[in-house]
Amino acid sequence: MRVPVSILGSQTIKTFSSIGRMSIFIWKFFYWIAKPPFRLKLVMEQLYFIGNKSVFIILLSGGFTGMVLAYQTYFGFKLINIDSLVGPVVALSMARELAPVLAGLIVSGRAGGAMAAQIGTMKVTEQIDALEVMGINSFQYLAVPRIIAGTIALPLLSILFLLIGNIGGWIVGTKALLIDESLFFAKLSDFMFMADIYQGLIKATFFGFFISLIGTYFGFNVSKGAEGVGRGTNLAVVWGMIVVLISDYILTSILVKIL
């Protein structure tokens, strides 16, 4: 009886400590973001790393997602003769859900994991200590630029995902499924409003923030050795995805009421 209870106890303590540490981490972010030096150059570097370097995979995923979506919806719609709605449906579902969430998952894997690995490796090779010894705040130097960059990059990537997804859907719809070209997006303005696009963008911004927050958090908290870095990277990727999906639900339910 004692052992399970003590396990429960220690697990609870561990969970609460983790939550506590993460809260402190978040607090640190908001504290240090307002303090100089403002490392714009680092933010730019990170934007390049998270943003530009993800463009290829975003375009690829976006394009194929749009194409598949058009394809799948077509068959059902054709049965009740609403195949003219394929265009709007693809555009709407991409704008509100698929673009932010899928782009978020992709970036979590790429950038979130990379952040954890980078920072984690720096920790085990004492590079973070070197920064501290030099009198540089390692958190402000490493974490803040990444988190800022992540928050900015993901909405941008999400828009690109959306655009290429619609193009992919259009190609499949008009060329392969032979929906009338002029009809494809004709109904779009009837069903879709700017609010839908804004919803997706707001979500993407939050996702970007969470992913880079999680990536840097796990990077700073790796345990010793190569195994520690590997674990940290894994945790960053997995938790990034989990948080994206859960916050997607929460944000959706809030945003539909506001917008």
Binding site: M44, E45, L47, Y48, G51, N52, V55, A91, A95, A153, P155, L156, L157, I159, L160, L162, L163, N166, F185, L188, S189, M192, F193, M194, D196, I197, L201
Partner: peptide, 25 residues
């Protein structure tokens, strides 16, 4: 790198402007 980042930002802004036009036609 900054130039490329700028390109990314502009590409996104142009895309969203284009899509807004379509949506609010």
């Amino acid at each position: 790198n900054e130039f490329k980042v700028g390109l990314l930002a502009i590409a996104s802004l142009v895309s969203i402007a284009y899509m807004s036009l379509k949506v609010t036609s």
